[in-house]
C-alpha cells in the first residue's frame, strides 16, 4: 500500500511504471518504462553512429573538412583535449569511453523534452518520456561501471599490492575510512545524477498538474532549466568525476 500524496500528475509519470512482467528461469523480470526509453535512446545513438560512419567512410582526407565532418572533428578534438587535461597523458585512451558515457547520459537527461510512445496493456500511449536517469537503477549501474573501472585500472597500473597500499594511506589506521570512501563514490555519483533529474521530473509533473493556462506559460522555462541546463551540467559532472576517480586510482 503506497498512497501517492501528490495529486494531479497525469501528464508526466513520476514513478517508474512496470509495463510488463517476464518470468525468465523463475526470476521475475519487470520490463519498466525506464528500460523501454533507454533502449530507444541507445537505438537512436547507434543509428546516428552508423549513419555517420557510412557517410564519413569515403571522405577524402586531403580536402578541407566541411559540414558534419567539421563539427564532429571539432567535438572530438575538444573531448580528446579535455580527457588528456583531466586524466594526464596516460589517460588519453579513455576519451572514447567517456565520450560515449557523456552522450548517453546527456541524451537520457534531454529525453524529458520529447514525446514518445509506450505500449501498455496492449494500447499505445503517447506521453512525455520519463528520463531513464531518473531511475536509481540506471544511475547506480553507471556508477558501478566507474567503481569497477577504478579498481581494475588501479590494480593494472600499480599491481594488487600497490593498490592495497594506496588504500592504507596516509596511515594504516585510515584503511576502513578509505574503504568506505571507495564504496561511497559510485553511490554519491548515482544519487547526484538521479536526484537532480528526478527532482526536475517531479517539479515538472506538479506544474503540468496546474491549471492548463499556467502550465503552458511556465513549463517552457522550467523545461529549459531542469532538462537542458541541469541535464547537460549533470552529465558533464558525472563524466568529470568519473575521470577523476579513475585517474586518481591510476596515479
Amino acid at each position: 500500500m503506497n498512497p501517492i500524496l501528490l495529486a494531479g500528475a497525469d501528464e508526466i509519470s513520476m514513478e517508474v511504471e512496470v509495463l510488463r512482467h517476464f518470468n525468465i528461469f523463475g526470476i521475475d523480470f519487470a520490463f519498466t518504462n525506464t528500460l523501454w526509453y533507454s533502449l530507444w535512446i541507445a537505438f537512436f545513438l547507434i543509428l546516428f553512429a552508423f549513419i555517420v560512419n557510412r557517410k564519413l567512410r569515403h571522405v577524402d582526407p586531403m580536402k578541407p573538412p566541411k559540414g558534419l565532418q567539421n563539427a564532429l572533428e571539432m567535438a572530438i578534438g575538444v573531448l580528446d583535449k579535455f580527457t588528456a587535461e583531466t586524466m594526464g597523458p596516460s589517460g588519453k585512451g579513455f576519451s572514447a569511453f567517456y565520450g560515449c558515457l557523456f552522450l548517453y547520459i546527456m541524451c537520457c537527461n534531454l529525453s524529458g523534452l520529447f514525446v514518445w510512445f509506450v505500449v501498455k496493456d496492449h494500447t499505445v500511449i503517447f506521453d512525455f518520456m520519463r528520463p531513464p536517469t531518473a531511475d536509481f537503477a540506471v544511475t547506480l549501474g553507471l556508477g558501478l561501471i566507474t567503481f569497477f573501472m577504478t579498481q581494475i585500472f588501479g590494480i593494472r597500473s600499480k599491481g594488487v599490492l600497490g593498490r592495497m597500499k594506496a588504500l592504507a594511506e596516509p596511515v594504516f589506521l585510515m584503511t576502513p575510512i578509505n574503504l568506505i570512501g571507495e564504496v561511497a563514490n559510485p553511490v554519491s555519483l548515482a544519487f547526484r545524477l538521479m536526484g537532480n533529474i528526478l527532482a526536475g521530473t517531479i517539479i515538472m509533473a506538479l506544474y503540468y498538474g496546474l491549471l492548463p493556462m499556467f502550465a503552458y506559460l511556465l513549463t517552457p522555462v522550467l523545461h529549459f532549466y531542469f532538462d537542458v541546463f541541469a541535464g547537460i551540467l549533470q552529465s558533464f559532472i558525472f563524466m568529470f568525476l568519473s575521470m577523476l576517480y579513475v585517474s586518481g586510482a591510476m596515479e
Partner: peptide, 24 residues
Amino acid sequence: AVAETTGIYGLFIAIMLVLANPLV
C-alpha cells in the same frame, strides 16, 4: 554542482517519505 550533493541527499529522503514511504 558538487556542493549540491548534500542537498540532493535530503531531497531523496523527502521524496522517499512522500512518494514511496517504507514505514507505512
